[in-house]
Design a binder for these strands. Structure first.
Lengths: 165, 165
DNA sequence: TTGGAGTGTCAACAAAGCTGACGTATTGTG
DNA sequence: CACAATACGTCAGCTTTGTTGACACTCCAA
């Protein structure tokens, strides 16, 4: 009270504000995944398939190990998902040219088509939210999310962002 | 180009910007859950237990049905989690006073203690992120997240926010 | 050339979601 | 009062997606 500037600056850091932030993340993440989930469900796929497809599309030719680093799961878990995608003809796995231990992963035409369906639905919701909020809010949204990531994840995120032209 | 105002306003809505928003949500949510997950793992609990504890603490005396609405899972799934929490003495289930078919749920002292451990760790990360970003960014973050929620979830969120004093 | 490190696969198991069916206690209504 | 509806719990069984353990293929360097 004796220092209005300081108290004003810290108002957004009260426990109540933080708890509202926690609940906002929880409910928003559910909205964020709802649309793709509906599409995936009709195809007998899950969120894990979506994530694999997203990042293979994002970095075509990526290796299994690289994908493991990004997704943060065990290779056995990823392998099961990858196997069904390969069997279904959505992903192609080519033996590495320089190091034949590696497998380079690519989306087939069918895989690319599904990726578009999924990301269109997710982008649609995000676009509506961004439009409703406006550019200033979107910039703040991005900065807070980036500050929330763990070190290694933040590195991955920035590296992907730069490769994205 | 012929309309600088319009193009400036829409720059943040390009597909590339939206894709970065999608990846930001993905990586940030992992950071968001990382700290509580570490605590829960050491106790043989999972995220489902955390969610139940959070919302029981948030609305003490809530009924099972109300919790089902908020969490959006089936009662069989919630029941499994609730049963272990009651057996372990973290949650108390009292027969309703006005309607004795209902069960009112409360955290015990042990349950409250765990809730504090969990939310302290999560608030710690959020506080750091909020402080790093600043009040303007936090406001934008909150507005974008709210715009991203589905209708029913947004209603739940707002109702909880108002009850939070 | 051979042994260790890196990469990927198979098998089996656990957590936590789901559906369907059913039992019990309680409430409210015709 | 009789009976349908509601709230809650539980059993059985299935799915997705995570885990660990064991193992095979490939590469590279001693």
């Amino acid at each position: 009270m004796s220092d209005p500037i300081r108290s004003e600056n810290l108002l957004y850091l009260t426990d109540e504000q933080l708890r509202q932030g926690i609940e906002a993340m929880y409910f928003a993440y559910r909205g964020f995944t709802a649309d793709p989930d509906r599409i995936l469900e009709s195809l007998a796929y899950g969120r894990a398939h979506h994530r694999a497809i997203h990042f293979i599309n994002r970095a075509p030719g990526t290796t299994v190990t690289n994908l493991l680093d990004i997704l943060g799961v065990t290779k056995q878990s990823l392998n099961r998902v990858l196997r069904t995608l390969i069997e279904d003809g959505l992903v192609e796995s080519r033996v590495g040219t320089s190091d034949r231990r590696e497998r380079n992963l690519y989306l087939t035409d069918d895989g690319t088509a599904l990726e578009h369906r999924l990301s269109d639905s997710q982008r649609g919701r995000l676009r509506a939210a961004f439009r409703e909020a406006g550019p200033e809010d979107v910039a703040g949204f991005r900065r807070v999310l980036e500050a929330m990531m763990e070190g290694e994840m933040k590195r991955q995120y920035k590296s992907l962002r730069e490769s994205g032209k």
